[in-house]
Write a protein that binds this DNA or RNA. Structure first.
Lengths: 222, 222
DNA sequence: AGGGATCCATGATTGGATCCCA
DNA sequence: TGGGATCCAATCATGGATCCCT
């Protein structure tokens, strides 16, 4: 299949999202000449990448939102049988050995500034092929959310900047947590500890807690 | 031991509570010439009744608060290792076959109108004898709590009044739930179903969810 | 290695069942 | 039976571990 060209306007993106709303993953996979995996154990990112293709996101880009011309990031939200987010949402990797940035200019905030959220049915008992796409929600980070995330981010970055990254566990952060993001727990990266020594640590990522994404859904469907 | 006379004023009650704050159940049991059970499996109400004796509550009374002269009810709150309520709090039995009452006059609200809450250490790994009594909290039902409970109570009573009590399960109610309150699940009482037929149903009780009591503790220690 | 994420063992919660006393 | 409650099996939630693609 030919890759679909990027949408030129937010409205065009929303129109495309409207066209896939309510359709099953089997239907969408067919339009992309793809087969549907029986389960996601060995295809964890499959749904997200399928949706990217359907909407014309520029795949594999780095240091750019999924729709660079629009400054819009795409995030799928897997829903449990109850219609609530089933998983936390990965945002980006945690910078190590990087020069300090401010909240206002950090990559995390840029990614979350404008997001097209796409809820996807994901109850364990529902076969992957039968799962349907919900209706998309285009958001801009609200003042309140900005403050909430800024606070968590600062606490995390303070620990990282002082070489105490290994003290961070997933319990930290009200809305934004830091968790491993690696091939496995033996995949190590170098960084600097509190005494200035080079140590190896697990690569981490920033994740939005389900309470945060649940709130986005709730506000929209209110 | 002589039973202690009822406190004559709220201040006297609070003074007595102050005297037992920080003391272990072993110490308190000793003052009442009681032995401490190794565990509460066969003595589930033991702690509550011990505290009643220590404070001079008129035991075994019906249709009256624990301290009738003061209009004050006594409730112990078992705390887990984290200092949060470990269990829901039983309030009173659910009326069956009773004439309808209003929220303003119902027995539940009268009991909760003024309560002396007594937190008690109750982490599973802490031997009963070593558990200590916390500092007492005397509360009046706030406007907000009154509204919260009224709403739950009305929903419950509506189902009961229309003979649909067997549809009520512990998931109902934001702050106030209804659960079995019986010797065992074979203990049945008669009531009337939606079609006016006499049926047998489990006796039930009203229970406050731990979120409700946790909030009381939080407000006090704020 | 960064971007797309879910898996799943283990801990926390819960609510139906149960226990003693007067 | 009403009042004093806790027990504990089953379910839910969580967060450390892991997987594919480019």
């Amino acid at each position: 299949m030919n890759p679909i060209s990027p949408p030129k306007t937010p409205n065009e993106l929303l129109e495309r999202a409207g066209l896939i709303a309510g359709r099953s993953l089997a239907e969408l996979a067919h339009t992309q000449a793809q087969s549907v995996p029986d389960n996601l154990l060995h295809a964890k990112g499959w749904v997200g990448q399928l949706i990217e293709q359907c909407l014309g996101a520029s795949a594999g880009s780095r240091a750019e939102p999924d729709f660079p011309e629009l400054g819009i990031e795409l995030k799928t939200i897997p829903l449990n049988a109850n219609g609530s987010p089933k998983e936390t949402t990965y945002v980006c990797t945690v910078p190590l050995n990087e020069p300090a940035t401010s909240w206002e200019t950090c990559w995390l905030r840029q990614k979350l500034n404008q997001v097209l959220w796409l809820p996807i049915e994901a109850a364990a008992e529902l076969p992957v092929a039968q799962r349907r796409v919900g209706s998309a929600i285009l958001t801009q980070l609200s003042r309140e959310q900005d403050v909430q995330l800024k606070q968590d981010w600062h606490e995390h970055m303070e620990l990282i900047a002082t070489g105490r990254i290994d003290e961070i566990c997933a319990h930290h952060g009200t809305y934004l947590q830091i968790r491993p993001k690696a091939a496995n727990h033996k995949a190590l990266r170098e960084t600097t500890d509190a005494d200035g020594r080079t140590i190896k640590t697990l690569p981490r990522g920033f994740y939005l807690r389900t309470t945060f994404t649940a709130d986005i859904l709730a506000r929209h469907y209110l």
